[in-house]
Amino acid sequence: MSLSQFHLFFIAASIVICLAFGYWGFQNYLNHKVGGSMLALAIGSIALGIGLVVYEIKVYRKFKTLET
């Protein structure tokens, strides 16, 4: 496995953790376990997860052009 493939795998794992953390934050906020600051972190995490999806697509295209 090359660095480009490992990077794509790592970013995919990061997307999963961002979305999972966002879900965790929302659940805890709704169950009154955490405050508003954690809700802000959860929203930010989901936004980052979406941003990483866009990045994953862009970097995949960049790797393709580097190969050719």
């Binding site: 660095l3 990077h7 794992a13 990061s14 953790i17 965790w24």
Partner: peptide, 24 residues
């Protein structure tokens, strides 16, 4: 640099596992 990058990604990936396991 690619080899160093593979190591670095592994270390980062370990943290991606550590974070939810220990903190969440």
């Amino acid at each position: 640099i690619e080899i160093a990058g593979l190591y670095w990604h592994f270390v980062d990936l370990v943290w991606i596992f550590l974070f939810p396991v220990l903190y969440l």
